[in-house]
């Protein structure tokens, strides 16, 4: 019986390795996404403010991850009194 156990035993290290690989793949993705969102926030803000006056506080960017597709939501609130620059008269976000 002991001999049988010895040959059957695989040790717990492979389990540790697999758990870590799955967990870290997930954690790395969420950390890099939060960096990506911050970067997008900055760049979208810069691009839009070239043409329309916007309040940086009123820009919201979300990245929602689904199983098949992820959704990038960009919400920019433009006050009606904001003057359009560069010939853009109808401001739409």
């Amino acid at each position: 019986m002991k001999l049988f156990d010895f040959f059957n035993r695989r040790g717990s290290a492979p389990v540790a390795r697999e758990r870590l690989q799955i967990l870290l793949a997930h954690e790395r993705a969420s950390v890099s996404n939060s960096n990506l969102v911050a970067l997008l926030h900055r760049e979208v803000l810069a691009a839009v403010s070239k043409h329309i006056e916007i309040d940086p506080e009123k820009v919201e960017i979300k990245l929602r991850e689904g199983d098949k597709v992820s959704l990038l939501e960009i919400d920019i609130e433009i006050s009606t009194s904001a003057s359009a620059r560069g010939g853009l008269s109808d401001a739409a976000a």
């Binding site: 035993r9 040790g11 717990s12 290290a13 492979p14 870590l20």
Partner: peptide, 16 residues
């Protein structure tokens, strides 16, 4: 212990 599969071995940690 690493050789017996009871502990993550050097290659495991390096790969991760």
């Amino acid at each position: 212990r690493a050789a017996r599969g009871e502990m993550l071995n050097v290659e495991d940690v390096l790969e991760i």
